[in-house]
């Protein structure tokens, strides 16, 4: 029971407390570049989810074999391999997505969040928790991407997944699908998440204070 709860903790950690984009502010480049519509944001999110999970597992499996001196090159090789596989698969089975994601796909190789999880978590933990950590971080990343994508596509283009929402007379706020809109969206979302964390922290402190008062 506690093992499952531990795994759940690891998973949820990636979603909120250590959300790659909103809390760690890592991998902002793709968060800006491919979130101008939901389809691309989701595709990118899923690609990263897969890469980070697969890489965490690979790193965790080989953590006892890899010489500490060359761990980073080995991690990069591993990530690059997985990314290439993703690229080949997308090219063959999802050509539209492959075309849209373009160079950003190859850039997954150097996403800080993937190397960071390999180094911080997978290199020190067994395979199952590493996998769950990858899934959590990946889901946190994908969720954040989709959230940004939804906001930008709805406001900036008046559509969601290319389906018009407001009818033909809606004049979309172009700035939202331009890079500037990406910065604004991400900035506001990070502020919102910071505020949320702050509120939760205060609530917990208050709770702890009350409990402390009662026992005293």
């Amino acid at each position: 029971m506690s093992a499952v709860r531990g795994l759940w903790q690891i998973f949820v950690n990636g979603l909120f407390e250590s959300n790659p984009i909103f809390r760690l502010a890592l991998s902002l480049c793709p968060a800006l570049a491919v979130t101008s519509n939901v389809y691309n944001a989701f595709g990118m999110g899923m690609s990263v989810l897969f890469v980070i999970t697969a890489n965490n597992m690979a790193v965790s499996l080989t953590r006892k074999l890899i010489n500490a001196k060359v761990r980073v090159p080995v991690y990069i090789t591993s990530i690059a391999t997985i990314v290439t596989v993703v690229q080949l698969v997308l090219e063959a089975y999802f050509p539209r997505l492959y075309q849209e994601l373009g160079i950003y796909l190859a850039l997954i190789v150097v996403f800080a969040i993937i190397l960071a999880r390999a180094e911080v978590f997978a290199a020190k933990n067994p395979i199952i928790p590493s996998m769950v950590d990858g899934l959590g971080m990946g889901a946190g990343f994908a969720g954040a991407m989709v959230l940004i994508g939804v906001i930008r596509e709805v406001i900036g283009n008046g559509t969601i997944l290319d389906i018009p929402l407001f009818g033909p007379n809606y004049a979309p706020a172009l700035i939202m699908i331009l890079p500037a809109g990406g910065f604004i969206t991400i900035g506001l979302l990070i502020a919102f998440f910071n505020h949320l964390t702050e509120v939760r922290k205060q609530a917990r402190e208050k709770l702890a204070l009350q409990e402390g008062g009662e026992t005293a």
């Binding site: 890899i66 010489n67 001196k69 060359v70 080995v74 090789t77 591993s78 690059a80 391999t81």
Partner: peptide, 12 residues
């Protein structure tokens, strides 16, 4: 070290 890298690249 060399074996490590070689093996990684081979598998890749």
């Amino acid at each position: 070290v060399a074996a490590n890298l070689t093996l990684a690249c081979l598998v890749s």
